[in-house]
Amino acid sequence: MKIGDLARETGVSPRLLRYYEEQGLITAQRAASGHRRYTQDTVEAVARIRMLLGAGLPTSVIAGLMDCFTGGTELEACAEQHLRAHLDGIESRIAQLQETRSALTALIGTTAAPAPRQLAAA
């Protein structure tokens, strides 16, 4: 199928499909005219990519996970190490954000309260 057909079938723009190809997430064969040609398997690959992007994974991590699919969107055990490493990074960022929130909350508590407004005499 052509890139436009793949875009319609997956709901992903041709530009984004070309990006996926640049990142090594999908592959295309080239017709004699130079146009990209995709197989039906690419539709499943795009669904996998979209699922992993939806889970917050960057394309660099996704590239390492593409061989860990058993079929459809089910992952084999080889994905666990990649997923745990990414989760650990997220947990670390959450902890840092919580510390930042606490520090900001403490700073807000130390600011001087605004002086009460006085009503203008009528």
Rank of each mutant, 00 (worst) to 15 (best):
E9R: 14
V12K: 00
E74F: 06
L97Y: 13
A121E: 07
A95G: 12
F69P: 03
G4L: 00
L107Y: 08
A7G: 04
A121L: 10
V61H: 11
Y19F: 11
A121S: 11
Q40V: 10
G34A: 03
I108S: 09
T59W: 02
G56W: 11
I108L: 12
E74P: 00
E44H: 05
P14S: 14
A121F: 06
S33R: 06
I3C: 02
A45D: 12
H35P: 00
R30A: 01
Q96C: 08
E74G: 03
E99Y: 08
T100M: 15
L107H: 13
H82V: 12
A115L: 14
G56I: 02
H82G: 15
I108P: 05
H82F: 15
Q23T: 07
G24L: 05
T105F: 00
T110C: 05
L16Q: 13
E91T: 11
A47I: 00
Y20H: 11
G11M: 01
L75K: 14
Q118V: 10
A55N: 05
A85L: 15
G11N: 05
Q96A: 13
R117W: 06
A85H: 15
T10A: 01
Q96S: 12
L107V: 04
G4R: 06
D41L: 09
C68G: 15
R36P: 07
G34S: 08
R93Y: 01
A122W: 06
T27C: 11
S33F: 02
L119R: 14
D67V: 15
A47E: 13
E91S: 11
G24R: 10
G64V: 02
Q40M: 12
A79Y: 08
R50V: 01
A55F: 04
P116C: 06
E21N: 07
E74K: 11
H82W: 13
T42I: 04
G34Y: 03
T110E: 11
T111F: 08
M51Q: 14
L75Y: 02
R18H: 08
R50H: 01
G54E: 08
V46S: 06
T111K: 05
L65T: 08
T27Q: 10
R101I: 07
T70F: 05
P14M: 03
D41V: 09
I90Y: 07
